[in-house]
Design a protein around this nucleic acid. Structure first.
Lengths: 335, 335
DNA sequence: GATTGCTACGTTACCGGTAACTCATGCAGT
DNA sequence: ACTGCATGAGTTACCGGTAACGTAGCAATC
């Protein structure tokens, strides 16, 4: 019970009457000791309250640590928060420790984070970004550790990729809306730091419309983080420029809900006057009077899969290069 | 540009014609070298693409690392997400690296996380929980590193505490509602893993009512994570048991918004028929037809302050034991 | 009986930095 | 001229593990 932070392998070894190396072997579970020795060592470990020293272990083994770097755009997003939590607990359960960073969609921030991370000699890296600086790519190459690119599926990954296609999500939603026979569509998006994360979804959406012979009637992309209020005033801006729209595709559900709030305040009915579609499958949609038409993203599954793929690669198991995690269009009552 | 991960201090030293120790001194900025030497060393550092090795540095200095452990209830919460992000970037800017964990309100999970963290010999710890297991407390004591308890203010901190009082927030809101002259109040809360985080707010709220000579007419605490939908059906449960209420105090804003959605679906008007108050100052409230009466919590400031206090303590600066970060009641239009 | 192979360890060297100490030099003050 | 001290280095030991290799003892094989 009384934990003695100063007890090291040497102390255990002396107490158990074996060598330091034998204690090391017992603690790491590799073979090379008798059951009797194991029991004696473990009882001393318990009695002395030995605390492993991973700094020394990582150093002694020449840089083979159990550290994993994880970099996402933001913590404070319901989707990334859930993915991050899933990665973190999965890695912890598998015996790895994560070092998390955020880049807010800025490749330069990712580069700064990566440089700091690299000095900890991580055993693997999980990234959630498609754009990287040349320095980042060069550093990733030099580190020669497994790398999982997640979220946005990269079909030509640096190493391993897991996620889904934003383009396909937009395309599928576009096709779905087209089936409703409406013709005049608008788009409301948001971009943080000049990077529209939803850009690929919008492109996919437009591609579907184009196939149907029409083009996007209006589009409004705010220079702000996506959120309820951005959807609210983005819709106001869009409608004031283009009052006669049949439907609006939103960056995500929260923006769609914000948009619906603005429409409701103007007496515009959904879906009678205008159809609404979001993306993400966010919880806020659950209390809307009408179920939101959206694309549900399995955030936790993506995180868990990313963690498992990385651990597989770090252990040297053969793993799939590209793993698609399907999203699901949920037809609601807003279209 | 071509980063050579294998170059170490020794290589730099040889190339610059000095000793390894001089290179170490130059890189860490401590004095003991001439400007000429510094320039020569730095140019070799640049040329060879030296990557610092913090594992070796932490090991060599006998465990004085720049690692900080941070443990919060959840990542995927708008409030904690924001605080976490703030801590992470603040620590990074100050030259520290964080290792983040989540405990989901379970002291046992916190203990497991702490044991894993301890083996990395962190230089400091930030915790967001009031309850700890005896083992956790004993381990925290043995680690002898600065500890910041944040979020819920602890006036008798283990080491340092920063945050606000949930009790006071509830009390202040209770007083505010009482001024409106209403008499019959209900409460809708949520608890994850049998721990009601909002318990202190509810207690404060009840204390205020008691001073006014009344008691809580009805209370409903769901065994679920707080969120929009929990507020929605929690309100349904509350009202079905106690239809005649003048006001409802909610665990947080998202639950209040969920509650308002349910009330709206029944044609119950806010604030005419019933007053509503939330807590947290969450973004979703920004699109409600009426501004929600709530308590705004400066989440990012708490994170930044926690990081700065910890770094102060780690550097040995004198820092305040207890730092109150005031929250602010924002009277909206729902009461 | 000699050789081989396996088990269960012990020995030794080393990972890449940092702390603590030593030492030569130059210059100001007495 | 001598002392004292700051400056700018070099030297040595060490942090606490792990990898690689060595070896004693014993059973199985040749």
């Amino acid at each position: 019970m009384s934990r003695n932070a100063k007890a090291g392998l040497e102390d255990i070894a002396r107490a158990a009457g074996v060598s330091k190396m034998t204690v090391s072997r017992v603690l790491r579970g590799s073979s090379g000791f008798s059951e009797e020795t194991r029991a004696r060592v473990m009882s001393e470990v318990e009695r002395l309250g030995y605390l492993p020293n991973r700094i020394a272990a990582a150093f002694g083994s020449g840089g083979t640590s159990t550290l994993v770097g994880v970099c996402v755009p933001r913590f404070a997003s319901s989707l990334f928060g859930s993915t991050l939590e899933s990665i973190n607990t999965s890695l912890m359960r598998l015996g790895y420790q994560s070092m998390i960073g955020s880049h807010d969609q800025l490749p330069e921030e990712e580069e700064i984070w990566l440089k700091g991370l690299a000095s900890w000699r991580p055993a693997g890296i999980i990234l959630a970004a498609r754009r990287h600086t040349p320095e980042t790519l060069s550093l990733l190459r030099d580190l020669t550790v497994p790398i999982v690119e997640m979220w946005d599926l990269n079909t030509q990954p640096i190493d391993v990729s897991v996620g889904f296609s934003h383009f396909d999500d937009g395309y599928t939603m576009g096709r779905f809306l087209m089936l409703r026979g409406r013709r005049r569509y608008g788009y409301v998006g948001a971009m943080a730091n000049r990077v529209t994360t939803g850009r690929n979804r919008r492109d996919g959406f437009e591609a579907a419309l184009r196939e149907g012979g029409i083009s996007l009637a209006a589009s409004e992309t705010l220079e702000d983080h996506p959120g309820f209020y951005a959807g609210y005033y983005g819709t106001e801006l869009l409608i004031s420029r283009e009052p006669k729209l049949d439907g609006i595709y939103y960056h995500d559900d929260e923006m769609a809900i914000g948009g619906m709030a603005w429409l409701a305040s103007r007496g515009i009915r959904v879906p009678d006057d205008i159809g609404i579609a979001g993306w993400g499958g966010m919880e806020a949609a659950s209390i809307q009077p009408r179920r939101l038409t959206t694309t549900v993203v399995p955030t936790a599954l993506i995180g868990k899969t990313a963690a498992e793929l990385l651990v597989g690669r770090m252990r040297g198991d053969p793993v799939q290069d590209v793993t698609m995690i399907p999203t699901r269009l949920v037809p609601g009552e807003t279209v």
